[in-house]
Design a protein around this nucleic acid. Structure first.
Ligand SMILES: [Mn+2]
Ligand SMILES: [Mn+2]
Ligand SMILES: [Zn+2]
Ligand SMILES: [Zn+2]
Lengths: 143, 143
DNA sequence: CTCATTTTGAAATTGAATTTCACTTTAACC
DNA sequence: GGTTAAAGTGAAATTCAATTTCAAAATGAG
């Protein structure tokens, strides 16, 4: 499925008249190779060991492009850092965030999605996107 | 019900060994007198006309205290400003946020709350609080 | 009233996000 | 392959809300 995301991003780059660069490919590869919800800083630091010349700003701009192209989603989980994850087209999930260790797990629930549509409809509201996050203690952090 | 919130806050102040001040009372009064979801800046500017000596930092610190005492909730709706609303004990609602005009409306839905508990339980997760926000176009901003 | 403690407000600082700018790289065209 | 306009890069500068610092003022217990 990373093959698909790479294609989506490359098509996006081409369609926008942007250029394909070594840095973007390296960042894309690193970004797709994990399923974590990474902050700019985290991805930058991770890359730095193997690619010390890639700057923070390039990581920042590239993650923005990923989000714009549709292969990434941007989050604010309340720890002061913007986080990104790569997503497959048509898929959706929401998050459980541990307030102690910061662990993020995922869930998807059709009933919730359906009720959201009802709620929006009853308010004459057209949903563009939504945020549903459960904050608390993960099983490892209880007790 | 504002009577109740005032009492909760004053009890909180007393219990913590903090002091009752003119500024805190003025800010509390202004905060309770609206049902909007105010940013620090907004509340500060609103107060400034009648109380030009109250500083931004005092509004900031007082809103934090409101949240700590339980009479206010803090939000990040993605516009870069932290927002506060006053809440009654035991009540809960979530939000619809218009991405065009910024209007914020409210809803509460028992089914959603119930499903959240199920989801948490199935992940061995203990919920402390949650965030559910629907972003899109309010009825006034469509078309 | 006294005085230790808390509060206040202006100014300074923080920190992540974003912009600027001089230099480099890409790719379209020949 | 060389030329060239446009886009990309990275360091440094800037932004902006949030937060901290600090000296002066206010509070309230005794
Ligand atoms: Mn996720
Ligand atoms: Mn509300
Ligand atoms: Zn945890
Ligand atoms: Zn609207």
């Amino acid at each position: 499925m990373n093959r698909v995301k790479k294609k989506i991003f490359h098509d996006f780059i081409a369609e926008k008249g942007l250029k394909s660069t070594r840095q973007r490919d390296i960042i894309l590869e690193a970004f797709l190779s994990t399923n974590r919800h990474l902050s700019i800083e985290e991805l930058y630091l991770h890359l730095r060991s193997a690619h010390p010349t890639i700057g923070y700003v390039t990581v920042y701009r590239t993650l923005k492009l990923f989000a714009e192209s549709g292969i990434a989603r941007e989050f604010q989980f309340g720890d002061g850092q913007t986080r990104y994850e790569h997503v497959a087209e048509g898929e959706h999930h929401d998050h459980l965030v541990c307030v102690l260790c910061g662990a993020i797990s995922e869930f998807s629930n059709a009933a919730v999605e359906a009720i959201q549509d009802e709620i929006a409809a009853s308010h004459g509201f057209v949903i563009r996107y939504h945020k549903m996050e459960l904050y608390g203690l993960c099983s490892a952090c209880q007790g």
